[in-house]
Design a protein around this nucleic acid. Structure first.
Length: 278
DNA sequence: CAAGTTACCTGACGGC
DNA sequence: TGCCGTCAGGTAACTT
């Protein structure tokens, strides 16, 4: 479900509820997520300690504690985090629950259990970046993620540009929706070889990726089926989709019919008028 | 290194 | 009503 904008919206929604709160109790469904949930370890490391901040890296949320411990949470396809009153009705796929000192609790819900909850004791920003996120590419908004950097990484690569920008080892946070939307807005066909983009095209694509992600964050993310932010509200960027899920509809720019095609196993939406076939 | 497949898991939807 | 196949926002581990 969640790509960078949705994770960022969740982070921003959670921050005011979590910052400075003490974790009092932890409950787990017992079902494994992508990896087993370290329930007893979390109780030892987190209970009685204060949450200092919530960060995001790529599509990961990072809850930092005053004792140096860090929770690293990935939402997978269907994961979500929300704040609820203690004792309120739980949902079917609530898998982890962190009780706080003010009568609320943070809940992780994940229908398909593709998400992950990991625990690092004694994590610093440096060790997190060096150990846990070592293989991740730069954040799209960071200085190190330049058009030059992307062009260099793409040099010699025949792989489709769409797959390339969805590769988290190259650039973090871009999933299927925002890859489709950014390529359409850049007028670049998703099957173009990554190495075939000119410097000018890289500049345009990077600028548009940044703008698209930023606009989506400002809209509260995209609600496809059930995405909601920490307070239970859905985002509305999906009204700005120009190609995603719009096969059979006419392009709002050139009036040609948008097609759907599987590229590298992922649904891709292309305007044959705006995005020239390689 | 690239491209393809499989796997993780549940639920919604369409066809019959 | 139900059964079956297909598909879904992500990622990693395999094989060729």
């Amino acid at each position: 479900m969640p790509e960078l904008p949705e994770v960022e919206v969740i982070r921003q929604g959670l921050m005011p509820h979590l910052n400075g709160r003490t974790i009092c109790e932890i409950r787990c469904s017992g079902k494994p997520l992508r990896s087993p949930v370290p329930c007893s370890e979390m109780r030892v490391e987190l209970c009685g300690h204060i949450i200092s901040t919530v960060h995001r890296r790529a599509k990961y949320l990072i809850v930092r504690m005053d004792n140096g411990a860090a929770l690293i949470i990935h939402l997978g396809m269907t994961g979500n985090m929300g704040i609820f009153a203690k004792g309120s009705t739980t949902q079917k796929h609530d898998h982890v629950c962190w009780g706080l000192d003010n009568g609320t609790e943070l809940r992780f819900n994940d229908t398909r259990r593709f998400g992950a909850v990991r625990l690092l004791e004694a994590a610093t920003s440096k060790t997190l970046e060096k150990q846990f996120f070592a293989a991740l590419g730069p954040e799209p908004f960071s200085r190190s993620c330049s058009a030059r950097y992307l062009a260099n990484r793409a040099a010699g690569r025949k792989t489709a540009i769409k797959k390339f920008i969805m590769n988290s080892h190259v650039i973090a946070g871009i999933g299927n929706i925002y890859a489709n939307e950014s390529l359409f807005r850049s007028k670049i066909h998703p099957e173009r070889a990554a190495a075939s983009l000119s410097d000018k095209e890289w500049q345009r694509l990077l600028g548009i990726i940044r703008k698209t992600l930023k606009d989506a964050i400002a809209c509260g993310g995209s609600t496809i089926s059930d995405f909601v932010d920490a307070s239970g509200k859905g985002g509305y960027f999906q009204i700005n989709f120009q190609v995603y899920g719009k096969d059979g509809e006419t392009c709002r720019i050139c009036w040609k019919v948008i097609i759907k095609k599987y590229i590298d196993g992922r649904a891709s939406f292309i305007c044959p008028g705006c995005q020239e076939q390689p």
